[in-house]
């Protein structure tokens, strides 16, 4: 079983916030370009898994690559398929893959999204946010407790984009997150691009949200950028992060100095040819310059 590691990778002068990036394997040149700028590599199990006969399993090739990263960066696992909010239960396949991953590679922590991707075993094809009700909070808290007991590792949950109008529940978004972390002790990932999408698409009030959120529980932040389509800002992670997104991340970090451990630049593997390795490396270099002070 993986051991908890809390040390930052030494890459020169100590900085307040480390830098991380998505890495989904099979692109050694990209990895080589990114490693000088990152302290953490974010790995998504669903992306590094492959079909092996009748089952889904971690790619041996990618696992070897990740093992070879060694001390150059720490690994953090960020899932999309756990479906922690599905009424019928979480994904057993996700647990099997996570068990397998953690048997082989030490991770700093692992994380998922506060939402659901399946209903009665039927996949939505997208992730939906939880209704902010007492029932939802109880369900998610029970499952977070279960996950933390199972792995004995820090576990973080991320705010997701609201792709349909929010259900008028018992809590505001911030109050729901506050109650979740206070009841379970889990940490938060704050994806500031998701906040920007919600502000653009739904009129979400970011300052009000941040004022209410207990940002001292935010351990990780995500920056990314997608495209606008039919007036909607899409959470597709296909672009370089905008200045406004980076500034919003700085604002959150400034609100609770010392809480946020890492800022992760997220991009999907399908976007790499369009973005280019050099642009990704330059993006990470800029983030490093911005957040190390």
């Amino acid at each position: 079983m993986a051991t908890l590691s809390t040390s930052c990778v030494d890459k020169g002068p100590r900085r307040s916030v480390a830098i991380g990036a998505t890495y989904e394997g099979r692109d050694p040149y990209l990895l080589e370009r990114m490693l000088p700028f990152v302290d953490y590599l974010e790995v998504t199990l669903e992306t590094i898994a492959e079909v092996q006969g009748d089952t889904i399993a971690l790619s041996d090739e990618i696992m070897s690559e990740l093992k070879n990263v060694g001390d150059a960066a720490q690994i953090i696992v960020h899932g999309v398929g756990l479906s922690i909010g599905s009424h019928e239960g979480m994904s057993p396949t996700y647990f099997r893959l996570l068990d397998d991953f953690l048997e082989q590679i030490d991770v700093a922590w692992h994380s998922e999204h506060l939402g659901y991707t399946k209903v009665d075993g039927e996949h939505l094809g997208i992730m939906l946010a939880m209704p902010k009700t007492h029932e939802s909070l109880d369900l998610v808290c029970r499952r977070v407790d279960e996950i933390q007991q199972r792995y004995g590792l820090p576990f973080l949950l991320e705010n997701i984009v609201h792709v349909v109008p929010d259900f008028p529940g018992h809590y505001t978004d911030a109050a729901f997150l506050n109650a979740l972390v206070e009841r379970t002790g889990c940490g938060l990932i704050l994806d500031v691009y998701n906040l920007e999408c919600d502000a653009h698409n739904q009129g979400f009030d970011i300052p009000v949200f941040l004022n209410e959120l207990k940002t001292e529980y935010v351990r990780e932040m995500h920056v990314a950028c997608g495209v606008e389509h039919n007036g909607f800002l899409l959470d597709v992670h296909s672009q370089l992060a905008r200045n406004s997104t980076v500034q919003l991340a700085q604002q959150v970090i400034g609100k609770s100095p010392g809480s946020v451990r890492v800022v992760v630049y997220e991009f999907m593997p399908e976007a790499i040819p369009g973005l280019g390795h050099d642009a990704i490396a330059e993006q990470l270099g800029r983030l490093r310059t911005t957040f190390r002070n």
């Binding site: 939505l124 094809g125 349909v164 739904q202 909607f232 959470d235 597709v236």
Partner: peptide
């Protein structure tokens, strides 16, 4: 409109 765009999102 969000629902239509969500479906489009799945498509994309």
């Amino acid at each position: 409109k969000d629902l239509k765009e969500a479906r489009r999102n799945v498509f994309m």
